[in-house]
Design a protein around this nucleic acid. Sequence first.
DNA 1: TGCTGATCATGA
DNA 2: TCATGATCAGCA
Length: 226
Amino acid sequence: MQRYTQIQMTIPCQTTKELLSKAYALNHMSVGELARQWQFSMPNDTRSSKGFVGQLLEIALGTDSGNKPQPDFEHLGIELKTIPINPKGQPLESTFICSAPLNPILGQTFEESLLYKKLKKILWIPIITAQKSQPFIERKIGRAILWEPSTEEYTTVKTDWEELIEMISLGQLANITANHGTYLQLRPKAANARVLSKGIGEQGEPILTLPRGFYLRADFTKKILK
DNA sequence: TGCTGATCATGA
DNA sequence: TCATGATCAGCA
């Protein structure tokens, strides 16, 4: 097992403007170049190093949240996401946003949810990926996009969230598939299929079930990046 | 061949 | 175990 990093520290950006100019400066740079600049050792394969590019960008842009459940740039209210896109600008994957509560807080509104806190402002860093098999080192960083949901996007995501949370609350977890939701999906988010966490069963009883996460569909992020 | 369900790595 | 960072891979 290999650590990606040496210990690195960056001074967090104080303003959104400062963060954006840092992000724009990475445009056209390859992931390999950025890794070299930060003395990251490049992983050999994408499979065993899925989070590599995301971690690299966190260091390069100086996030300050660690792995706490809050936006990466907490003081700016901005979440950082790398997203693999093909040369036509189409996302290759859906985007994980946050883990889903399997025992939702009763009465919690969308605005109070972790999902909303992360979604309300996202700095997208496109990673131009010729093919899924292309090694990280060759992939190129694209132009960053600071995004906030439009009224329509906000409303649709909110509706998705409310429907999914209601199903979870009513013990319908077993019936939720990735087909639910217009922009949002609820899908497994675990090390493997044997990982269990506490949820709500059909009769309201506690059950053990696979941890889930909220993801944005690739069709949706495609619109965002346009 | 796109999408859903499964999986990989790290840190606290 | 649960949070973060995501991509893999088999099947419809």
